[in-house]
Design a protein around this nucleic acid. Sequence first.
DNA 1: GCCGTTTTCGGCCCGACTGTTTTCAGTCG
Length: 579
Amino acid sequence: MTKTAVLAMLDELIALTILDEENVQSFKVRAYEKARRGVENATDDLPALSDTQLTKIDGVGKSTAAKIREYLTIGSVEKIDQLRKKYPPEFVALSNIPGLGPKSIKTLRAKLSINNLADLQTAIDSQQLRELEGFGATSEEKIAKAIERLGISDKNRRFPIADALPLAQALVDRWIEVESVSDATFCGSLRRMNETVADIDITIGASNGPLVAEKVRSSPEITEMLAAGDTKISFLVASGLQVDVRIVSPEQFGAATLYFTGSKAHTIAIRQLALQQNMLLNEYGLFKKTDDGKENILVASQTEQAIYAALGCDYVAPELREASGELEAAAKQALPDFIALTDMKGDLHYHTDRSGDGRSSVEEMVAAAAAKGYSYLAITDHGEDLAINGSNREQMLEHRDKIAALQPSYPNMTLLFGCELNIGPDGGLDYDSDFRALFDYTVASVHSHFDQSVDKQTQRLYNAIADPSVHSIGHLTGRYIGKRPGIELDMQTVFDALVEHDVALEINGSLNRLDAASDVVRQATERGVKLVINTDSHHKSELGRMEYGVLTARRGWATKDLVVNSWPRDKFLTWIGYN
DNA sequence: GCCGTTTTCGGCCCGACTGTTTTCAGTCG
């Protein structure tokens, strides 16, 4: 909570400084942005840090450390208060309008006394903008249009990954089939598996760019065209989501995807690394500078792997590119042994139509898991406490027999009779302890009562974790990304409990959940908490979510040794006490 | 504002597009 507030303070400082310096990337702005990233990657307990420790945070120097201290002590920062007087919030908000930067809005204020959105609208209505030096009729119309769309496309609007990824995948799947296309991928924060994205970036490698561009420009999803060139095309779709498409030659595909994937901070870091080696990196390739500095000789461009290799680095997968230590580790060939999709040996949160919300039969669900080549599978339909979706004791025992009857047909996959237990408001679980002991494997999860205090929620989780029947905690916070916030917890206490009771923390692969979140996973990994990556499938078509769970785990630097369902069958069955 | 294998000053990633301009400024990624 404190860190979130400090980050918000730094965000405001950045926005105000951009205006004050009239430059979105002045050195001071970039310094603040770097400091913000440092704080983001630092400990949650900022007040516990001394002034010296604060300046140890990457990018935080004396001045920023003093501002953070000031904020933590008195809840405000003098510098920000001063800047607010010069630039009130409703004036700063004008910079959310696409196409308007700091220079423009300050010109508008100086020449037309525009201090807020209403002033701007009035000026546009009376066609005053087009008379200004540096503006024109076209600019005025563009700004008017941007304001009209503001509700659906301001610069800060973000979309849940569950909305963006399926569309991006569908577009890529379609365009990769177009004549002369050698490769295509979505990039940006979506490829890095961020939980929310501002837009969809797609890079296409093609020998016949204009032909592909024509195909892209005629896509049926387009509700509004923003830019329609032969190499760069931008459009909006009905949801308001913006799609940016770049078409490059097949030889440039690697350099282009590396650049368009970002993150911005990772891009800057890797370009600095190139500079140190007397090389130049841009979206067209990695180039060696000749001794006279006049010429650049291409070193690598076709694949991202070749570029990292030429820089002396291990390959850094997209989901790791957040400038949180990955490049330093890759340069030393010291990236940890992260979990990979091919390591996964089983799914341990898995529903059938025994659950009210399940939509495939147990036979279908087991067959789908077997097709994945899994060595073990826990079928975890809801316990009795979930009134509509749950099962009573009789139904559960009948279900157990059904699962047991299927086992002989699957000699290579151990079927576990499991349950998704509901964690009640105080941490109570379904059935009674004797009945719960009948399950081979359980995942306990929160499904309701989201509005209790941090202390109460933490105690609630502790009680569930401490129960001997519990093997894992499902979707830790119960959040739905972009729709419902999760419960608030004291994470360190939860991690301690998980370690103490040897219970695994789930990473749920549903795109609506991705819970535990990658930043939580990273802290949990550092604490040595065991992890489990699941699909929470309710239909036979949902097993592919394992990939998203694994990517989220990798974003959280989860190592293979901690992920219990990557373990060989014997080791895993021993861990759960199965015989 | 930050930082140091060029270490307390001098540099800080690199480029495209747009609209306004006659050579560039501003915005964006």
